[in-house]
């Protein structure tokens, strides 16, 4: 492919800008998802990330997106302790956990609820409903679903990006590092999702890998755009001016 062709440059630039915007949107989503509802800047909180990847979906929701609906932090502790103790259908469930869910959750999480924002397909009406969300981390089903979507999707983004980087006049070590790191970070991120069910350490590796992924994709986009438009030879300049 002749990268000095003006039309090719425009097409590739369109792709790169789109990837950049998508990367910023992904970063914004992560910030919003893991920053909690407190007023102010949406800075992701480690506690929310740990809850999301390492703790049960119920506790992760209570600490995360559902936090504004929880009357008191002590209620989350009660539910967390009950789940950590095995989430049994015992007195703690009926006398402590269920009343919290009745007060804070069931007005929306009920099969017939038509309240604004209701989640009738995610009821929390009884023990069976609740224990569907007490497994640590992602369920295997959810993991498999998320993993294959992310691997296919991000691979399709990284492949053209790394192929472009491979074409650039960069120092070989820089080029190899960018390409190898981009793929490695993706694999580390996805593998850590699976392993974070078992150890909180892998939540940290998700953070590291995710940060590397977002940074590298952005960096490669900027480098490619810069190289396309500002590192061209005189012949390219002439072609650029002509378009």
């Amino acid at each position: 492919m002749n990268l000095s062709n003006c039309a090719t440059k425009l097409a590739i630039s369109g792709y790169l800008v789109s990837v950049l915007l998508a990367t910023f949107a992904a970063a914004a989503l992560i910030c919003l998802q893991f920053s909690g509802p407190s007023a102010g800047l949406p800075i992701p909180k480690l506690e929310h990330l740990i809850a999301h990847y390492h703790q049960s979906q119920l506790v992760a929701s209570l600490k995360g997106s559902m936090y504004p609906y929880v009357a008191d932090d002590d209620d989350i502790v009660i539910i967390e302790n009950w789940i950590n103790a095995g989430a049994a259908d015992n007195d703690v469930f009926s006398q402590q956990v269920m009343p919290i869910l009745e007060y804070d959750c069931q007005s929306c999480h009920s099969p017939n609820s038509t309240k604004t924002g209701a989640a009738p397909k995610l009821p929390l009406s009884n023990y069976a409903d609740v224990t569907a969300f007490t497994t640590a981390g992602y369920s295997w089903h959810r993991l498999a679903k998320s993993a294959h979507i992310h691997l296919f999707g991000i691979a399709l983004v990284i492949l053209p990006l790394t192929l472009l980087v491979a074409q650039l006049k960069l120092h070989a070590k820089v080029k190899y590092s960018l390409i190898a790191l981009a793929w490695s970070a993706l694999w580390l991120d996805i593998v850590s999702w699976w392993l974070s069910k078992y150890s909180v350490i892998f939540v940290y590796s998700i953070i590291v890998a995710g940060t590397i992924e977002l940074t590298l994709v952005s960096l490669m986009c900027f480098i490619c755009l810069y190289s396309l438009w500002f590192c061209a030879n005189k012949q390219d300049d002439n072609q650029t001016r002509s378009c």
């Binding site: 504004p68 009357a71 008191d72 007060y103 804070d104 007005s107 009920s110 017939n112 009406s125």
Partner: peptide, 18 residues
């Protein structure tokens, strides 16, 4: 009322179940 300073009126709202 417990939780009002965080959730507002919603703490007193109890909807009928299924």
């Amino acid at each position: 009322a417990r939780g009002f300073s965080k959730k507002g009126c919603d703490i007193a709202c109890h909807m009928a179940d299924e």
